[in-house]
Design a protein around this nucleic acid. Structure first.
Lengths: 237, 237, 237, 237
DNA sequence: CATGAATGAGACTTCATTCAT
DNA sequence: AATGAATGAAGTCTCATTCAT
């Protein structure tokens, strides 16, 4: 467990493994790397284990990646790519906001339930303190990751489907936060969940919080406010 | 009754850190331990650093705690104690659910903004896989931590203030999730936030999702009806 | 069949020292390990010293053995193998028991005089209390080690060469005990001994204690009787 | 487990604990020290444990003894004193050698069965290599310890009860060796023994090896030898 | 006199990484 | 291109011993 010095970006030239080397090997490393990092977290994952699971030499890992850190970053990037792709696929921009939200939530939960929690934890805990070298690589990824949601929300606001009285960032946390929290619980307590039920319930709750107040409600609120003011005037008279 | 698991042979005695030892030292260790674990996470935190920050010998750390792990657990416990205490203080059970929620959210954000994110990450990422040795100590703490919220929600449901059509667990995630997510962003992007604004907005959004679906609507309708009748009476007079 | 003891969760993989690794290195480690453990005993032997004597890095030691304990066990096993092999070589089962005893004692003393005392001490003092982690590995070795002697004794009894009125275990101690004791003295007082003389004397003494009580006596009596008869015949002729 | 540098005799003057201090405390320390050293061996015994068993501070131990090593030496000395005393008591010098041997063996086994094995191991394994600082203190003790036996044997030889054709040292090992060996077995394998039976058997066997050859046997052997010579002469003629 | 507290010195062990083959 | 082997640097933890009170 000695936190290696991880001696900074390392400007020395490196035999860059020729792309043509073994695409398969590279994919294997990313796949197994993802498994191991997800299971153990960054610090507790070892190059030894990754190599062993593939039945290759540890040294080979360093032929494909400059080091553990680079492998980890690549693993995370790959994972983000998948998520973003899945999220964007089948999200017709013209569908009603609630339907889009439903798709997003469902996709999200599904992807994470399969394997994502470990990686999520990885990103969360490694991408933490500013001093950490890993974290810096993650910010742009975070951006890409939340982009589909932000787009969805913005479109919904533009169309009057989603409330506009709260900052977008807050709405984003409102959607992503509960999902992550739910997933933690699932993993921590090892309780199986019914994806469909949870997704449905969650969207129901979220939508209550996100939707633009509907017409009658708006009218009634205005009525009440008018009344208030009228009363106030009458009293001050 | 199962035949006792045979109480581990040869328990070499350890120096027991006398309770009455320098209370100050102990508090210092917990304080600095909290800092370091929060900043670095469990694996990257080192007993060396903790000792150095206090200007004491590393060996001294082990006079007060059986090891790194115990220190960490104690740090977390301490932190939970603070949180739970703060959460319970000033939460009048008879107040309206929304007021209670407001208090809870505000307290939560305040406590975490001060230092909690690192510790939150610590708990989240270390309390992950069941195989991990730390995680097991954390589950009971999690329970205590969410207890105030659960009580609040249950009371609200009983009084008809909070919707009953969704499982409590989901509502809990709905509240805690966004807070954690917001805090990550704050820390990760180092963006300052206005606690009051964020808390107010968040409660506003959460309440839309939590309240009994027809509560406001019903109230407004009744208001309108009352108004109608009042006007009618006034005219018929 | 008892329900398997649940195979320890989360077995973080270790680098497996490949059998084909530098055989030479391995032999060196066992050789030097034997020296150091013999000189210092288990606790006072250090991996540092073992590595230093070979001029290699301490880490390398752990590439070949899982840890200090495993190295020690392997050292002892090796040593036992040598002893048992030497003991069995040249012990013709059909030879008279006393001749076999002579061979065994001589071999034993010779092997131990070279280096064995330290290792003997190691086994004796580490294999002591049941709580000790090392001891458990040693019992089977002890069995193998004393097997040749036990066989010898049993065969001798079957043939009527060795007394049968005492338990085998006691006879075993009667043989092995003095040898160990003699060796202690040699080492402790650093007094040189003449292997042949000591072995001869010891066997002489041991044989007095082991032989079937009446064996020599009976033989001599028969000799005398034969003689008498021969004389008688010669006179009557 | 770090083998302390044990920084050599330490010539600095030391507050020698006034004899009048607490004789009781001193006895307690020696008693408990004996227990712990016997159970664990020198290296694994800790001043912590000794102090804890007495419910006193670790520092106090160092008020009574210059250090762990000195305590250990004193423990061993005490133990030797007891043994020698017990051995000498009730050993009437005029009794037949075999009766004396019986008493000695019985006393020895009894004393060791109670507690001695651990201490025996201690002496054996710590008093090993010449470089060890502990060992040097032990040689004179060894002398005192074996003195009663040596006296017994010498007297027996003088009286013609014990054979004189073997060196005394060898006879000593012949007696002490098996006893130690037997005790190892008892402890190592945790097998209970019947002291009386074992003692009786052992003495029986030992006596066969020690006693002066009896009259008939001697006569017969002389006869055989004479015969041999006569035959030889007759042939060479 | 007794002790609470602190600590220096070191032990075992792990692991990312390098390099000759 | 792949790897067997080696290792530097670090980490956690233990314990005899000292010293001010």
């Amino acid at each position: 467990m000695p936190p290696r010095p991880e001696p900074a970006p390392d400007p020395r030239p490196r035999r860059v493994p020729s792309r043509a080397k073994s695409e398969q090997r590279l994919r294997d490393l990313l796949r197994v790397g993802r498994e191991v990092f997800a299971e153990r977290g960054y610090e507790r994952a070892t190059t030894t284990e990754i190599a062993q699971r593939l039945g290759i030499s540890e040294a080979t890992v360093f032929t494909y990646f400059r080091g553990k850190r680079e492998l980890c970053v690549r693993v995370i990037e790959d994972w983000y790519d998948e998520i973003v792709a899945a999220m964007e696929a089948g999200l017709p921009p013209e569908a009603p906001a609630r339907a889009q939200l439903d798709h997003l939530v469902r996709t999200h939960l599904r992807l994470f339930l399969i394997q994502g929690t470990g990686l999520c934890a990885l990103v969360l805990s490694e991408g933490r303190s500013k001093g950490q070298e890993l974290g810096e690589s993650f910010l742009p990824l975070q951006k890409r990751y939340t982009a589909p949601l932000m787009t969805l929300l913005a479109r919904g606001q533009a169309r009057g489907e989603i409330r506009t009285d709260l900052p977008l960032r807050l709405l984003r946390s409102l959607v992503l936060g509960p999902m992550e929290h739910l997933l933690w619980e699932v993993v921590a307590q090892d309780r199986p969940v019914d994806l469909d039920t949870v997704a449905q319930d969650l969207v129901e709750a979220l939508w209550s919080a996100l939707r633009a107040p509907d017409a009658e409600l708006a009218a009634l609120r205005r009525l009440r406010d008018d009344l208030d003011q009228a009363l106030a005037r009458s009293r001050s008279a």
